[in-house]
Simulated scan of single mutants.
Amino acid sequence: MPQLDTSTWATMITFSLITLFSIFQPKLSNFNFLPLPYFKPKTLLPHPSHPWTMKWTKIYSPLSLPPHL
């Protein structure tokens, strides 16, 4: 069974990478990237110091509810 000649693989891989780089470099250099997002400062809205005093809610645990028949 003949042996596989791998002596030219290194040069083929090197030249393939150089060719791919030379093909894709102009395409990537012409690509317009989006600018970085602009962060607006948050405006502080006046809110009460204790928001739970404005509204009364009660959360029932399912075990504390009366049984439904």
Rank of each mutant, 00 (worst) to 15 (best):
T53H: 15
I18D: 00
L69P: 00
L45A: 12
P48T: 01
L36W: 09
T53N: 15
I18R: 05
T8V: 09
N32D: 07
T53R: 15
P66V: 05
H47A: 12
H68R: 14
L45G: 04
S22E: 09
L17W: 01
H50D: 14
M1N: 14
P62K: 01
P62G: 01
K55R: 15
P66T: 00
T57A: 04
T11W: 09
T57K: 04
T8S: 15
A10I: 03
T11A: 15
Y60V: 01
Y38R: 13
T53S: 14
I13Q: 11
F31L: 02
S61T: 04
H68S: 15
T6G: 06
F24M: 04
P41L: 03
K42L: 13
L36K: 10
K42P: 06
D5W: 06
T8N: 14
Y60K: 05
S16V: 07
F15V: 10
K40E: 10
P37L: 02
P67A: 08
S29R: 14
P66H: 03
P62S: 01
P62Q: 00
L63M: 14
W52S: 14
T14R: 15
P26L: 00
P62C: 01
H68Q: 15
I18P: 07
P66N: 01
Y38G: 03
T19N: 10
P41D: 02
F31A: 05
S7T: 12
P46K: 06
P67M: 04
F24C: 03
L20W: 05
I59W: 05
Q3A: 13
F21I: 09
L28P: 04
L20R: 08
L45Y: 08
H68N: 14
A10R: 13
L4C: 11
L44C: 05
T14W: 07
F21W: 09
K42D: 06
L28N: 03
Y60M: 01
L65G: 09
H50M: 11
S61A: 03
T19F: 13
S61M: 01
L45K: 13
F31G: 05
P41Q: 00
L63A: 15
S7E: 08
K27A: 08
S29N: 15
K58A: 08
L36D: 08
A10T: 11
Y60I: 04
I13R: 12
P51A: 06
S49R: 05
L34T: 05
L20K: 06
Y60H: 05
T14C: 04
P26H: 03
L17P: 05
W52C: 11
T11G: 08
T6F: 07
K40A: 10
F15T: 14
T19K: 05
P67E: 01
N30C: 02
Y38E: 13
K55T: 11
L44D: 08
L4H: 12
W9S: 03
S29Y: 07
F21K: 04
K42R: 14
T57G: 02
P46H: 07
N32G: 07
K42C: 07
K58S: 09
H47F: 07
W52K: 11
F39R: 08
L4E: 12
S22H: 01
P37C: 05
A10Q: 13
L34R: 06
M1T: 15
N32Y: 02
K42S: 10
